[in-house]
Design a protein around this nucleic acid. Sequence first.
DNA 1: GCAGCCAGGTATATCGTTTAACCACCGGTC
DNA 2: GACCGGTGGTTAAACGATATACCTGGCTGC
Lengths: 342, 342
Amino acid sequence: MSRKPTIADVAALAGVSVAAVSKVVNGKGGISAPTRERVLTAASKLQWTPSAAAVALRSAKTRAIGMVAKRSPDLLSADPHFTLLISGIESELSPLGYGLLHIVGEEPSAEEAAYRRLADERRVDGVVLTESRIGDTRFELLRTLGVNTVLIGTPWRADPVPSVQATGPDHGIRAAVDHLVGHGHRRVAYVSGPEDRVHTLYRRRVFEDALAAHDLAPSHSVVSDFTAAGAVDAIGGLLADRRRPTAVLFANDSMAVAGMSAARRLGVDVPGELSVVGHDDLPLGELVYPQLTTVRQDLVGLGRAAARVLLASLGEVEGAPVDIRPPELVVRESTGPAPDRT
Amino acid sequence: MSRKPTIADVAALAGVSVAAVSKVVNGKGGISAPTRERVLTAASKLQWTPSAAAVALRSAKTRAIGMVAKRSPDLLSADPHFTLLISGIESELSPLGYGLLHIVGEEPSAEEAAYRRLADERRVDGVVLTESRIGDTRFELLRTLGVNTVLIGTPWRADPVPSVQATGPDHGIRAAVDHLVGHGHRRVAYVSGPEDRVHTLYRRRVFEDALAAHDLAPSHSVVSDFTAAGAVDAIGGLLADRRRPTAVLFANDSMAVAGMSAARRLGVDVPGELSVVGHDDLPLGELVYPQLTTVRQDLVGLGRAAARVLLASLGEVEGAPVDIRPPELVVRESTGPAPDRT
DNA sequence: GCAGCCAGGTATATCGTTTAACCACCGGTC
DNA sequence: GACCGGTGGTTAAACGATATACCTGGCTGC
């Protein structure tokens, strides 16, 4: 088995210098059409592709984007939410020959270390951040490390970090509230995710606002943790109340499904006695019975947009940000008219 | 902002040659303790880490493992199954500073191209393959490309490709069948995944075998495609039969949940009139009501084991393969006694 | 007392590209 | 005919590490 061909082999076969070959493959001008042809056919005859390592070393471009996930307790990182985001990211990356370098940190502290490693070892050209957190230190870190960054979501404060988010980010939740109120619900509860997430606060506020527009206030507001167990606890608490809500919005689909299931197990009919709304529109919601009414988020679009921003700042692609569909309410089976007042 | 420090800076600060620094960080001998100390403190003072690109170029080691997913129609690639596998793989990779380079192919043909790129550009030290397929050409391809490979699952033929799989791979399905038959089920159906998967055939055979041990044969055997819609169709067909099954095993949890939901929507009680069993034990199964009885697979363990095999062949780690828990039946709420014969 | 050897380094070639600097040649200008 | 500018290349110096071959001084053995 012969060793891998190098640019020198191609140059030799084409009868030119290596510099000429380099110029051809990088589309720099100054090479005549006939020579270009010779080089190209030589390259393909040899099946030559530039070595990523050499390119990275010489031009400080790795053609890779990094993403680090902190391995949460449980396997929250297995949430399809991220998979969808990743799917979107890669759909933009792949055509350009970029790869996604994925790293998970074992311990919580490992997250920062992972970013440092990515930066210090110069393994990636940029990173994408998800799950904007309050008091997030990652931007600062990455800025001092000098790494291109894009955040999927809203920065926790007016920060010069590039970010992507849907236009009209409150549409979906407002529509959900209107839908519920329109069906006669007056006691509506909200089960949020952890409070260190920026979107948690934002969504809860939108929820309250939307309700206020109907002269209503949340019947309950509980903060949970995105886990199934948490959702079950939450729903248990809500249903135990004498003045229990007739509808509840969850901050994500997993909690919504878990909550809905827990309710049914307690003998509460969904949507007969309780309407349930999720958030994200993961495939999961369509699988279950009753199918989940949910606020759809264009997760794939967010991923694509994020990738685009990064690629643009790397000069790989220009302008024309991909558009992200605004959140919208998807009405399925888990919501219905409020039960008659007793 | 000063440029990134190089090994030369460290050497200068420590008052030694770059070679000495290299030896220290790579643990080669021949350096006295005091000098080692000096080098180490110099390195940490400068926050120096070797450039991945330079190391990769010089020593042909990228410290990255590749994985390519073919973007199926739909977003099957968003199946948490893979996420769990990845989670396992990374848990072994991270501590050693390895990363996982993930690539998705847009068109089907892109899969092979992706492997080629990974190999030709020398971007990874090895790749892990999942979803062993019948007539799989990937092994051959990767072998000729000279890339370290490990397969999660069973090779489609006695092939010298290293692979990892659970011990006693048939335990789970047998236990499921025994469980069902023990509860009086006599008409049991199987809904498989696509037939080009090696495990599809294997599992179906185990299923038939297990049934045969009770002098029974499958009441129905339908092949589906792992999608929700496919599962719904399948269950529709089964329930329409005058001699419908009283229990059905699905080849994965998503189909099982979708099937179960479809059945309930048709007014068929689960597990009262129909018992349902899944495969994999994804978090999803616990979320729904009724909770899914399923054959648990140690997906994370499989991922870890695969990573270990790869790392071992790279000389990064030795022997002691991680053990993969054998598949086992997890009985939850979706199975119960067979309905009385009519 | 001298060859030999080892611990502890150093000098330098090398990995496969990109790129800046340079050069040869040709046609057109004055 | 000397000069000039523009093509279409070439040469050679990086990029940041690793590894091989080679020194050096202090001991040992005889």
